[in-house]
Every structure is written in C-alpha cells, then in structure tokens.
C-alpha cells in the first residue's frame, strides 16, 4: 500500500524533505518508523513521538491503510 509520510522540524531537516511516498507492506506504525529511523538517523525512539494519521493525532497501534498520510511528531516546542 502507498503511504504519504510528512516530516516536520528536526525530522524534516534530517530527512532533507517535507514529505515522501512510501510503499509499505506492514500496516504497523512501529515498523514504518523503524525503517525511517534507520534511513535518516532520527534520534527519537518510537515511544517518544506522537503520531498523526490523516492529520489527526492517533494511537501508536493504529493500523495504516492505503492512501493514508502519516507524521511522526517529536515533543512540541512552540510558544
């Protein structure tokens, strides 16, 4: 299935992109993040991040569906 991954802040800087499309077979967010972390040397553990699926905060055990967008979110530091 095809997933759009969105990157923000530090993760966008490390990935050198704001989004990309990935073909994935495993619907778990953990597996997707593990691949991305290895590819881009993201410093955060999966459990340190919040996750947004289709622009909504989502549980870590959410299963991905074809066409979903996903963003892994480090702790917020606005303000």
């Amino acid at each position: 299935m095809e997933i759009t991954v969105l990157y923000f802040g530090q993760l966008a800087e490390l990935a050198k992109k704001s989004e990309e499309t990935k073909d994935v077979f495993d619907p778990s967010l953990y597996a997707l993040y593990a691949d991305l972390r290895k590819a881009y040397n993201f410093p955060q553990e999966f459990t340190q991040l919040q996750v947004a699926v289709n622009h909504q905060l989502s549980a870590h055990n959410t299963e991905l569906c074809d066409g979903d967008s996903v963003a892994f979110l480090p702790p917020m530091t606005g303000g």
Binding site: G9, Q10, E13, P74, M76, T77, G78, G79
Partner: peptide
C-alpha cells in the same frame, strides 16, 4: 492557553547560537 500551546500545539523551534551552532529544542 499558553500553557497548552507549549505542550500540545504541533510547532517546533530551533535555536541558532552566536557561535553558528544550531539545535532543535527537545522540550518546553
């Protein structure tokens, strides 16, 4: 409102220092 902005709004900041180094802030 500002307390919750600091903890919940999906915004991230990077500091740029006078010595040229940069760092993404890890928590508020």
């Amino acid at each position: 409102i500002i307390d919750n902005i600091k903890h919940r709004l999906p915004v991230w900041k990077k500091e740029v220092y006078s010595n040229g180094e940069e760092k993404w802030i890890e928590n508020n």
